[in-house]
């Protein structure tokens, strides 16, 4: 029974750890970034912001465009696909396909930006 494991330390849930660490609260301090890193971060921020705004624009098409379209075209209530009203499919099924697609595209794009702007080693 003399199994030598790693040193045992107290383990707590993230909340408890957070709570206990709070006493020495997070201090705002100047982050240490070199001039080169600052430049690189500035470039990344700019490109990432553009990617994020594109994703938000696509999101707006789904959550603003679709309701407006359904309001403008009440005829869609009468059109049926496989017995279901198109206007019902447009709120019950269609948005989820769009949201997943936007999420995938945005994720790929953000990760590519980080790869492309990574520090040359």
């Amino acid at each position: 029974m003399s199994r030598k494991g790693p040193k045992r330390i107290a383990v707590a849930s993230p909340q408890t750890r957070l709570a206990m660490a709070r006493r020495s609260a997070v201090r705002a301090e100047a982050p240490h970034l070199g001039r080169a890193d600052l430049e690189r971060a500035r470039r990344i921020r700019r490109v990432q912001l553009r990617a994020a705004l594109t994703a938000l624009a696509l999101l707006t098409v789904v959550v603003v465009g679709l309701p407006l379209l359904l309001a403008a075209l009440p005829e869609l209530d009468a059109v049926r696909v496989a017995g279901v009203r198109v206007s019902w499919l447009a709120v019950a099924v269609l948005p989820y396909g769009g949201l997943v697609a936007i999420a995938v595209v945005q994720l790929r794009r953000a990760e590519r930006i980080e790869r492309d702007h990574g520090e040359p080693r």
Binding site: A52, A55, V62, L99
Partner: peptide, 24 residues
């Protein structure tokens, strides 16, 4: 009515906004 189905769309779309703007 059927319009209440926008609730779950919004609940899900929130994570797209989170992904694009704040997660990382």
């Amino acid at each position: 009515g059927i319009g209440a189905l926008w609730y779950p769309v919004g609940f899900t779309a929130g994570y797209v906004a989170m992904l694009a703007l704040v997660a990382a």
